[in-house]
Design a binder for these strands. Structure first.
Lengths: 229, 229
DNA sequence: AAAACAAGTGTTAGATTTACACTTTTTATT
DNA sequence: AATAAAAAGTGTAAATCTAACACTTGTTTT
C-alpha cells in the first residue's frame, strides 16, 4: 500500500493569524493593518498568512510575523484554532498565535512598508472576519498568563523601572494597583535584579532600573516553584 | 477574479484527536484503543479522525467521539493544534480536543466494538506519535480548569456525594485534601444543592447526595463571580 | 530657597488558608 | 442485645496572605 490510508480525506487551507501586543509605556496596543485583498479589502485586520507545505506551524507564525512586520525572535504562543470561518465559500482554518513585543526595540514598524499601525486596545475598531474574537481570547490569555508566568517582561525593554512594570500590569488588567503592595509582591519573588543605573526619563528623582533574572527563574522552576503574582 | 486569492496556497490534511477522560470513583482514566492501520498499527492511540470538507472543527470532534465510542452530548473543549507531526512523509495537522465523560452513564463502552479501553492515568502506556504530549497537555488543562470552572462535575453522575467529589479532585491533582477544608470551601460557593437522598454504596452510614446548581452558577457568572476552588 | 514631581518606603486590620480530632449513623458480628 | 467496624460529618485556632493606607526622599526648575 503505497498510498497512505488517509489519502481519501479532504485537505484544507490553513492560515496563521497573529495577535501582536505591544506596550508603549502607557497602554497596550495591537498591531493591525488594512487588508489589501478581497474579500473585506480595506478592513482592519490582524497579520496573517497561509501555512505552506511541510512548514511547521510555529515556523509559519514566525515567518508571517517576520515577513509582515520585520520582527523576529519575539515571544509567540499558539492561542486557538478557528474552524468555522468561511471565505469565498471555501473554509480556511485559522490557527491564531499571539505575540508580545518590546515596542522600544521595534518602534520602527509604525508607518512602515505594510501599513502596520499600533492601535490602543481601548480604541479597537471593528475587525475583519472573526479577528475581534481572536483578540479578545488573546487578551484573556495574556491576563491569565501574566499572573502565572513572567511573560510581561517580553513587553518591556531588558532594563526597566518598577513604576514602568507596574504601569504595564495596570494596562494589562485595566485597573490600578497599590504601589507598595505591587513592589512588595514582585520583589519578594526574588526574580528582579536591581541595577545601579537610574532611568531619569520619567521623573526628576529617577527610578532604579531592574532586570528580570532568567537564571534564578529557571532555578525556581526546577524546584517546582515559579512566578506567581 | 473568480478564483480566490489564496488558491495558490497549499492545502493540508487536518485530523482531530480526542483525549477522553473518565473517573471511576477511584482514579482518572483515559480511553484508548489499539490503532488498526499503518503506520504504527497496533500501538496505543487516542481516538482520532480526519476533518472533512466544510465540517466545522467542533462538529468534527463531536462526530469522531460519537462514531468511535458512542458518546454524545459530552463536554468537549479544544486543546491545541499540533503541526509538527509527520506521517508517511506527509504532514497531518492535528487539532486535539479533550473530553470529560461521566463513566457511569457510558460504562458500556468498555470492550465494545472499537476495542476502547479505559486505562488509568498512572498506568499510561507509550502512545503512538505525539499523543502522549497531548495527554500531558490535556491533564495540565484539566487541572487548571477544574480549579476555576465547574468542569469536574462533567466527570460525575448528576447526583453525587461530597466524599466522591473530593475523591475526584484528589484524583485530578494527585494529592489528598483535608475533608473539612474541602467541604467548607466547596459548600461556601453555594453551588451545590443538597438532596434528601443518601447514597449508601460507599458506607454503612450513607452520604448525602448533592447536585450542581447550574442556575445559581449562571447567576453568579452574570454578577462577575464564578467557581473558584 | 522653595516648589514641584515622581520614587520610594512599613504597618495594621481583615480575610483566607491550613492544620488538626472527635462524634454520628448504620450495619455486621458476636 | 451489645459491641465493633467503617465512613460521614462537624468547628476552632494559628498562621499566612491580602488590602488599605500617608509620608519622606531626591532631584530639577523657578
Amino acid at each position: 500500500m503505497s498510498m497512505p490510508f488517509y489519502s481519501k480525506h479532504s485537505k484544507h487551507y490553513v492560515a496563521v493569524d497573529c495577535i501582536i501586543f505591544g506596550f508603549d509605556q502607557e497602554k497596550i496596543n495591537i498591531l493591525l493593518h488594512k487588508r489589501k485583498f478581497e474579500p473585506y479589502s480595506g478592513g482592519w485586520s490582524l497579520f496573517g498568512g497561509f501555512l505552506e507545505e511541510n512548514e511547521n506551524l510555529n515556523n509559519a507564525a514566525g515567518r508571517i510575523l517576520h515577513t509582515l512586520t520585520g520582527f523576529s525572535g519575539v515571544y509567540l504562543e499558539q492561542l486557538f484554532t478557528y474552524g468555522d470561518v468561511e471565505r469565498d465559500k471555501e473554509r480556511v482554518l485559522s490557527v491564531a498565535y499571539f505575540a508580545l513585543i518590546n515596542t522600544e526595540r521595534y518602534s520602527s514598524v509604525e508607518g512602515g512598508d505594510f501599513d502596520a499601525v499600533w492601535i490602543p486596545l481601548e480604541e479597537l475598531p471593528d475587525l475583519v472576519l472573526d479577528h475581534k474574537i481572536m483578540v479578545n481570547k488573546a487578551l484573556r490569555r495574556l491576563r491569565r498568563k501574566a499572573a502565572s508566568e513572567p511573560i510581561g517582561f517580553e513587553l518591556l525593554p531588558e532594563k526597566f523601572t518598577l513604576p514602568r512594570l507596574q504601569k504595564l500590569y495596570e494596562a494589562i488588567y485595566g485597573e490600578g494597583f497599590d504601589k507598595r503592595n505591587f513592589r512588595k509582591k514582585i520583589l519578594s519573588m526574588g526574580l528582579l535584579k536591581k541595577l545601579d543605573e537610574k532611568d531619569k526619563s520619567g521623573s526628576k528623582k529617577g527610578a532604579f532600573l531592574f532586570r528580570f533574572d532568567k537564571k534564578k527563574y529557571d532555578e525556581l522552576l526546577s524546584e517546582g516553584l515559579g512566578f506567581e503574582l
